[in-house]
Amino acid sequence: MRAFRDFCRRFSRNRAALAGIAILLLVFVMAVSAGRLFPDDPWDMIALPFVWPGQDREIWLGSDMLGRDLAAGLFHGAKVSLMIGFVATLMAVVTGTTIGALAGYYRGPVDDLLMRFTELFQTIPQFIFAIVVVAILSPSVANVTIAIALVSWPSVARLVRGEFLALREREFVQASIAIGMGDLRIILTQILPNALGPIIVTGSLMVATAILTEAGLAFLGLGDPNIMSWGTIIGGGRDALRSAWYITAIPGFAILLTVLALNLVGEGLNDALNPRLKNR
């Protein structure tokens, strides 16, 4: 408990990380309130096309080339980005941790086999792999999430394996083996809690990457055709780039802020978990 309080104290002293938390909270509130503030479908055409931001008080962020409310798209897009980012990361972290833990704990042939498998996934260019997966499975929120998880677990597996290899040699683990504790129990209750710090830091950075990947896929037209996401708006706004660049600029800026916030939080977590490294 004291360790946790220390961690909170160190984290709260990091102003950049707190700013990151604030931005993330804002995006979260946007995502949650999207349905209430903009109950209509964000695909509905509710105004004249090409209304610039600030021109009309009713649609304060303007409208796109088909007269859809950009603010509605932005709020509903926040929901999609956060959900895909977090769910894909969760899936990748669980998969990566399982594979990395098994490889690092059992070593030997199990390690060889699992790491070869991981290497295969690291060799295949990730974004192109994600494109192929979505193209084969057909674009939908679930498939985009699966594709992102599928390309991002290897880095977690590598990290967890390294942690397990190191922790396994420590005395408290050797002691657990000596008193006859089962493998699963050692992995889950002895080693994993001690490897959790780096996993959480990597996870927070992976959410950022996942959001960028989702936006990239949606920009290429591989997003769910029924869901308004930030990348989708940018992809559509691209056609009107010359006359109405704000359609592209606004959602892109939202992505930038969200990803920046996640990076700040990730770095803050890292500094708070490894206080000695900070002022090296």
């Binding site: 950022a208 960028l212 936006a215 990239g216 920009f219 940018i234 691209r238 780039l241 660049w245 592209t248 600029a249 892109g252 992505i255 930038l256 802020l257 990803v259 920046l260 990076n263 700040l264």
Partner: peptide, 18 residues
């Protein structure tokens, strides 16, 4: 570095075109 790290590549390109 932080800002460049967080900017979506394709969006950066589009803004440069603008």
């Amino acid at each position: 570095a932080m800002l460049s790290f967080a900017t979506p590549v394709f969006w950066m390109g589009l803004m440069m075109i603008v």
